[in-house]
């Protein structure tokens, strides 16, 4: 606080408004109850007696997105669920944060290869602030992830510097139709484009011949 600091009695604390707001924000992160799969059990364990996420001010699990600041996506997101994840994210008030918990949400995890129905990483659907890998991550790892979110909040400068509150949302929404390079008003041409794309991808994915 520079020149102001130490000018008053000891019981007076000086700070900036921004820091005060950030401090309040970081110490009352309200996560949303959003258990999807196995990782949700570890999230529950983090909230339960031994690990006690309440020590970090994030124990008030909210059932509705409208009261939550933090979405812990705990578990596998599949195509049927993706649109729901996106909608829940949109319903949360700003500023909002997302933790991708577990290998599945980081990038498909154990279902990467044969999971025809699994979204290969939740960052294709919502922006992710902190990735917590593991299958499932231990509760300590989730707590660490929470602390990284708190670090992020502490450094927020939206009041003074006008820094944007959230990271940009990915273009793939789960609602939209095909990306422009694959779609065409003419259905025949669109199919041709998609076939070419599929072929190229297949060639790329094929293992190199020795």
């Amino acid at each position: 606080m520079g020149w102001l600091e130490g000018r008053f009695e000891e019981s007076v604390v000086t700070t900036t408004l921004e820091q005060a707001i950030n401090w309040a924000r970081e110490s009352s992160m309200w996560p949303m109850t959003f258990g999807l799969a196995c990782c949700a059990i570890e999230m529950m364990a983090t909230g339960a007696s031994r690990y006690d996420i309440d020590r970090f001010g994030a124990g008030a699990f909210r059932a509705t997105p409208r009261q939550a600041d933090l979405m812990i996506v705990a578990g596998t997101v599949n195509f049927k669920m993706a649109a729901r994840v996106r909608r829940l994210y949109n319903q949360m008030p700003d500023p909002k944060f997302v933790i991708a918990m577990g290998a599945c949400t980081c990038g498909g995890g154990p279902y990467y290869k044969y999971g025809y129905n699994v979204v290969k990483g939740v960052d294709l659907v919502v922006p992710v602030d902190v990735y917590v890998p593991g299958c499932p991550p231990r509760p300590e790892a989730l707590l660490e992830g929470l602390m990284r979110i708190q670090d992020k909040v502490r450094a927020m400068k939206d009041l003074t510097k006008g820094q944007p509150l959230e990271i940009p949302i990915p273009a793939r929404t789960g609602f939209t139709h095909l990306p422009p390079e694959l779609s065409d008003p003419d259905p025949v041409k669109a199919v041709e484009k998609q076939n070419a794309w599929a072929k190229r991808n297949k060639e790329r994915a094929a293992p190199a011949k020795a």
């Binding site: 195509f79 025809y116 294709l124 793939r172 789960g174 939209t176 139709h177 990306p179 794309w197």
Partner: peptide, 27 residues
């Protein structure tokens, strides 16, 4: 189990995995 507009029946041996579903890439 799958979404209503899903195409194909995945447990057939000749099923091809989708490249994308509603704008989300599948692989």
């Amino acid at each position: 189990l799958l979404a209503e507009d899903w195409e194909g029946h995945p447990l057939r041996k000749d099923y091809e995995f989708p490249l994308e579903y509603h704008g989300i890439r599948g692989r």
